[in-house]
Each structure stands twice: as structure tokens, then as C-alpha cells.
Deep mutational scan, measured.
Amino acid sequence: ETWTVFRRYSRFREMHKTLKLKYAELAALEFPPKKLFGNKDERVIAERRSHLEKYLRDFFS
């Protein structure tokens, strides 16, 4: 099953920080790092999307 969620990266990062405070075991999940430069580059966006998808798969498993 596939879901499509339209949210900004910052909202996922905020969710991760909030949940990590409540559920300490989530700290073990690696959240994709923020890029200061090149964040509009298609390659960077695709890489971030891939890392975010892995994070979410790990989160829900």
C-alpha cells in the first residue's frame, strides 16, 4: 500500500522532535539531516525524500 502525504520537510522534523520528547525510544530513528545549501536542487530533494521515506517505514514498523 502506498500513501502520498504533502507536507513540508520542516513539519516532519517538528513531528519527529515532538514525538521524541514523548517516546524516548524514537531517538534511535535517524531523521534525515537538514541541508543549508542546495535544498532546491532536484538531486538533494530526491535524496531527502528517499531518506524521509526510510525514516517513515522504520517509524511505522
Results as ranks from 00 to 15, higher is better:
Glu1Trp: 04
Glu1Gly: 02
Glu1Ala: 01
Glu1Cys: 07
Glu1Asn: 08
Glu1Arg: 14
Thr2Asn: 05
Thr2Ile: 12
Thr2Leu: 14
Thr2Val: 07
Trp3Glu: 09
Trp3Gly: 11
Trp3Cys: 01
Thr4Trp: 11
Thr4His: 04
Thr4Phe: 08
Thr4Ala: 09
Thr4Leu: 05
Val5Phe: 11
Val5Lys: 15
Phe6Ser: 06
Phe6Cys: 01
Phe6Ile: 09
Phe6Asp: 03
Phe6Ala: 06
Phe6His: 03
Phe6Asn: 03
Arg7His: 14
Arg7Lys: 14
Arg7Pro: 07
Arg8Trp: 10
Arg8Ala: 15
Tyr9Cys: 12
Tyr9Ala: 08
Tyr9Asp: 03
Tyr9Lys: 09
Tyr9Pro: 12
Tyr9Ser: 11
Ser10His: 00
Ser10Thr: 13
Ser10Tyr: 02
Ser10Pro: 12
Ser10Val: 07
Ser10Glu: 01
Arg11Asp: 06
Arg11Ala: 14
Arg11Met: 15
Arg11His: 08
Phe12Arg: 00
Phe12Cys: 07
Phe12Ile: 11
Phe12Met: 08
Phe12Pro: 06
Arg13Lys: 12
Arg13Trp: 07
Arg13Ser: 08
Arg13Asn: 06
Arg13Val: 04
Glu14Arg: 02
Glu14Ser: 06
Glu14Lys: 08
Glu14Met: 04
Glu14Asn: 02
Met15Lys: 02
Met15Phe: 09
Met15Leu: 14
Met15Glu: 00
Met15Ser: 00
His16Leu: 15
His16Ala: 12
His16Gln: 07
Lys17Phe: 01
Lys17Pro: 02
Lys17Ala: 05
Lys17Gly: 06
Lys17Val: 06
Lys17Leu: 00
Thr18Pro: 03
Thr18Cys: 08
Thr18Tyr: 15
Thr18Leu: 06
Leu19Asn: 02
Leu19Gln: 00
Leu19Ser: 00
Leu19Val: 02
Leu19Trp: 08
Leu19Phe: 08
Leu19Ala: 01
Leu19Ile: 03
Lys20Phe: 01
Lys20His: 04
Lys20Glu: 00
Lys20Asp: 00
Lys20Trp: 01
Lys20Gln: 04
Lys20Gly: 02
Leu21Met: 13
Leu21Asp: 12
Leu21Val: 12
Leu21Lys: 15
Leu21Phe: 02
Leu21Pro: 00
Leu21Tyr: 03
Leu21Ala: 15
Lys22Met: 08
Lys22Val: 11
Lys22Trp: 14
Lys22Pro: 00
Lys22Gln: 01
Lys22Ile: 11
Tyr23Pro: 00
Tyr23Cys: 13
Tyr23His: 08
Tyr23Phe: 15
Ala24Glu: 07
Ala24Pro: 03
Ala24Trp: 02
Ala24Gln: 06
Glu25Ala: 05
Glu25Trp: 10
Glu25Gly: 04
Leu26Asn: 01
Leu26Arg: 00
Leu26Met: 05
Leu26Ser: 01
Leu26Pro: 02
Ala27Arg: 14
Ala27Glu: 01
Ala27Asn: 05
Ala27Asp: 04
Ala27Ile: 08
Ala27Thr: 12
Ala28Ser: 08
Ala28Gly: 08
Ala28Val: 00
Ala28Pro: 04
Leu29Tyr: 05
Leu29Ala: 13
Leu29Lys: 06
Leu29Arg: 07
Leu29Ser: 03
Glu30Cys: 15
Glu30Ile: 15
Glu30Tyr: 15
Phe31Tyr: 05
Phe31Trp: 13
Pro32Arg: 13
Pro32Glu: 04
Pro32Lys: 14
Pro32Gly: 09
Pro32Met: 13
Pro33Val: 13
Pro33His: 12
Pro33Asp: 00
Pro33Phe: 15
Lys35Met: 04
Lys35Ser: 08
Lys35Asn: 11
Lys35Leu: 07
Lys35Pro: 03
Leu36Pro: 05
Leu36Lys: 03
Leu36Val: 04
Leu36Tyr: 03
Phe37Gln: 03
Phe37Ile: 08
Phe37Thr: 02
Phe37Lys: 07
Phe37Asp: 07
Gly38Asp: 01
Gly38Phe: 06
Gly38Tyr: 01
Gly38Met: 03
Gly38Gln: 09
Gly38Ala: 07
Gly38Trp: 08
Gly38Arg: 08
Asn39Pro: 08
Asn39Leu: 11
Asn39Arg: 11
Asn39His: 11
Asn39Met: 09
Asn39Thr: 05
Asn39Phe: 06
Asn39Ser: 10
Asp41Cys: 12
Asp41Trp: 15
Asp41Met: 14
Asp41Glu: 09
Asp41Lys: 11
Glu42Val: 10
Glu42His: 03
Glu42Ala: 10
Glu42Thr: 12
Arg43Tyr: 03
Arg43Met: 05
Arg43Cys: 09
Arg43Pro: 10
Arg43Gln: 10
Arg43Thr: 10
Val44Ser: 15
Val44Ile: 04
Ile45His: 12
Ala46Gln: 10
Ala46Tyr: 06
Ala46Cys: 12
Ala46Phe: 06
Glu47Arg: 12
Glu47Asn: 12
Arg48Met: 13
Arg48Glu: 04
Arg48Ile: 12
Arg48Asp: 07
Arg48Gly: 12
Arg49Tyr: 01
Arg49Val: 04
Arg49Ala: 07
Arg49Pro: 06
Ser50Met: 01
Ser50Lys: 08
Ser50Gly: 08
His51Thr: 14
His51Arg: 13
His51Trp: 09
His51Lys: 15
Leu52Thr: 04
Glu53Ile: 14
Glu53Arg: 15
Glu53Gln: 12
Glu53His: 11
Glu53Trp: 15
Glu53Pro: 14
Lys54Ser: 07
Lys54Met: 05
Lys54Ile: 05
Tyr55Ala: 10
Tyr55Lys: 15
Tyr55Ile: 07
Tyr55Cys: 14
Tyr55Glu: 00
Tyr55Asp: 02
Tyr55Val: 09
Leu56Ala: 09
Leu56Trp: 07
Leu56Gln: 13
Leu56Cys: 11
Arg57Tyr: 04
Arg57Gly: 05
Arg57Pro: 09
Arg57Ala: 04
Arg57Gln: 01
Asp58Tyr: 15
Asp58Leu: 09
Asp58Lys: 14
Asp58Cys: 10
Phe59Gln: 03
Phe59Cys: 04
Phe59Asn: 00
Phe60Pro: 01
Phe60Thr: 01
Phe60Ile: 08
Ser61Gly: 09
Ser61Arg: 13
Ser61Leu: 10
Ser61Met: 09
Ser61Val: 10
